[in-house]
């Protein structure tokens, strides 16, 4: 351990435990997170490029990308608006039931996805409380892509609320007082003064919600109907290939999903890093 401690890069390191915590962390990350990903590449190595391309561009698979991305985009937009509204109301106003509403925001993270899945499917089926109201009006939610978007929006709403909320809280009262005293209307003041402050957080939260929606499985499969080409999501495609023992096919599609979600995660991290630096630069 003393050997490792001489690798120090910062100022004098008085605290112990560098070697131990480094050892545990690196061992864990290697074994639990990185090693399994090599299994995926091992499987892919058995495929030629042409075979790989054929699998990931097959009609039914491409249709599943479209369904997944389209529904996730709709869910993200809904969440951006609804999440901003909720964060605003929770930060700016006092009203009875506020603490309860705040606690309720975390429900989608705490509730197992399969529970959310069967509940939404039951509520929005034609015999359910919501489906019974909506279907006579011509809105079919269950077993359509609308249901998929709804399930995605449900599971990812906390990302937007919990990212925007702290930024709104930190906004000093003088900011909007100044705007209001100069005679701006609520709408103009919000757009010109509040939005520029919170939009990096709003984009981050919406981005995280979108990434989560792309990979969501449990909440969606019950309400989706899972019709090939119509309401089949990519995560389910992987699952179907696995049940057919088509490991190569499952891996090829999974590699696309993995690549896209890691790229998006990295983009969000870089984006957030820039935004945080800018904030600190502005303050100090």
């Amino acid at each position: 351990m003393s050997q490792l401690a001489t690798w120090r890069t910062g100022s004098t390191r008085v605290l112990p435990g560098f070697g131990l915590s480094m050892g545990i962390s690196v061992l864990f990350i290697s074994l639990v997170l990185l090693l399994p990903i090599t299994g995926l590449f091992g499987q892919l190595a058995g495929l030629s490029l042409a075979e790989y391309w054929a699998i990931i561009t097959e009609g039914r698979v491409v249709a599943s990308y479209m369904v997944t991305i389209g529904a996730a985009a709709v869910a993200a937009i809904i969440n951006a608006i609804f999440g901003l509204l909720l964060a605003w109301v929770l930060v700016r106003y006092d009203f009875p039931g506020k603490r309860l509403l705040d606690a309720l925001m975390d429900l989608p993270f705490a509730l197992p996805t399969a529970v959310a899945g069967i509940t939404l499917a039951t509520l929005y089926a034609s015999s359910g409380w919501m489906g019974g109201l909506l279907e006579p009006l011509g809105f079919q939610v269950a077993y359509t892509w609308v249901g998929i978007a709804l399930a995605m929006a449900f599971t990812s709403i906390p990302f937007v609320v919990r990212t925007v909320q702290p930024v709104l809280e930190d906004l000093p009262a003088e900011v909007d007082e100044a705007a209001m005293s100069l005679g701006a209307t609520d709408g103009v003041a919000f757009r010109r003064v509040i939005l520029p402050h919170i939009w990096p957080a709003l984009v981050t939260g919406t981005g995280l919600a979108f990434v989560r929606s792309l990979g969501e499985f449990g909440a969606i499969i019950f309400i989706a109907g899972n019709m090939p080409y119509e309401t089949e999501i990519t995560a389910l495609m992987i699952f179907v290939k696995l049940q057919e023992y088509d490991y190569a096919g499952a891996s090829a599609i999974a590699s696309v999903v993995l690549f896209v979600s890691l790229a998006l995660l990295l983009a969000i991290n870089v984006w957030q890093g820039r935004f945080v630096r800018r904030l600190h630069g502005g303050k100090g």
Partner: peptide
């Protein structure tokens, strides 16, 4: 890099997580 790596499970679809373990083990 370590701090970014621990976010992997949040970004990876649960089905993909299961699959990579199945492929290896």
């Amino acid at each position: 890099i370590l701090q970014t790596l621990i976010d992997i499970p949040f970004a990876v679809s649960p089905v993909v997580a299961g699959l990579i373990y199945l492929l290896l083990y």
